Simulated scan of single mutants.
Amino acid sequence: MNVPTSSPPRSTPPTASCADSSGPRSGGRDDLATAADVVAAVAAGDVPAARAVREAGRAIGGVLATCVNLFNPSVVVLGGTLSGAGDHLVAGVREVVYQRSLPLATKELRIVTAAGGDRVGLLGAAALVLDAVLAAASVDALVAASSVDAAG
């Protein structure tokens, strides 16, 4: 009986390396210490950096696929510095999300990058603060407190 031999299935996706072997966070390249450095390298046409960003997108997509199946959103917005790599990141995310999500959940799904770029986290935090400060209960409490101060 001939049994074909093959390598065992991988439990984790392969990792992309940007070069030889130096820093663990920079994929082996000392010149890629931050996400902004990686985005700049991708913009300059650095193929290993683009591969690393695509692989990062696949890892993010693995997590987002679960979220898409659970929440069934109509849009997923990717933000932060790494989103500046554009299509390289989004393609990796889409690849895994569409593979691992239910067809009904992805039928109308759009995966896009945030317009705010790397400031999107700050803008979101500011929006949360404004929502809390301008909530009806907060405004009512402020009005009641100023009415007590004016009367007394």
Score class of each variant (00 low, 15 high):
Leu89Trp: 00
Lys107Glu: 15
Glu95Asn: 11
Val77Cys: 02
Ala114Asp: 05
Ala91Phe: 00
Asn72Pro: 05
Asp87Glu: 04
Leu102Pro: 04
Gly92Lys: 04
Glu108Thr: 14
Thr106Leu: 08
Thr106Ser: 13
His88Asn: 08
Arg110Leu: 03
Ala115Cys: 01
His88Tyr: 09
Asp118Arg: 11
Asp87Thr: 04
Thr106Trp: 04
Ser74Val: 15
Leu104Arg: 14
Phe71Ala: 14
Leu89Val: 04
Val76Asp: 03
Arg110Gln: 13
Leu104Ile: 14
Val90Pro: 00
Glu95Gln: 14
Phe71His: 08
Leu102Gly: 03
Asn72Glu: 15
Gly117His: 05
Ser74Ile: 14
Glu108Phe: 09
Leu70Ile: 10
Thr106Pro: 07
Arg119Phe: 12
Leu122Phe: 11
Gln99Phe: 03
Ser83Gln: 09
Leu104Asp: 13
Asn72Val: 09
Ile111Ala: 06
Glu108Ile: 11
Leu89Asp: 06
Gly86Ala: 01
Val76Glu: 02
Arg110Phe: 02
Ser74Ala: 14
Asp87Tyr: 00
Arg110Val: 00
Thr113Ser: 07
Thr106Lys: 09
Val75Thr: 15
Ala91Leu: 01
Gly116Phe: 13
Val96Asn: 01
Leu109Val: 06
Leu122Asn: 10
Gly121Asn: 14
Ala105Asn: 08
Asp87Ala: 05
Leu122Cys: 12
Gln99Ile: 10
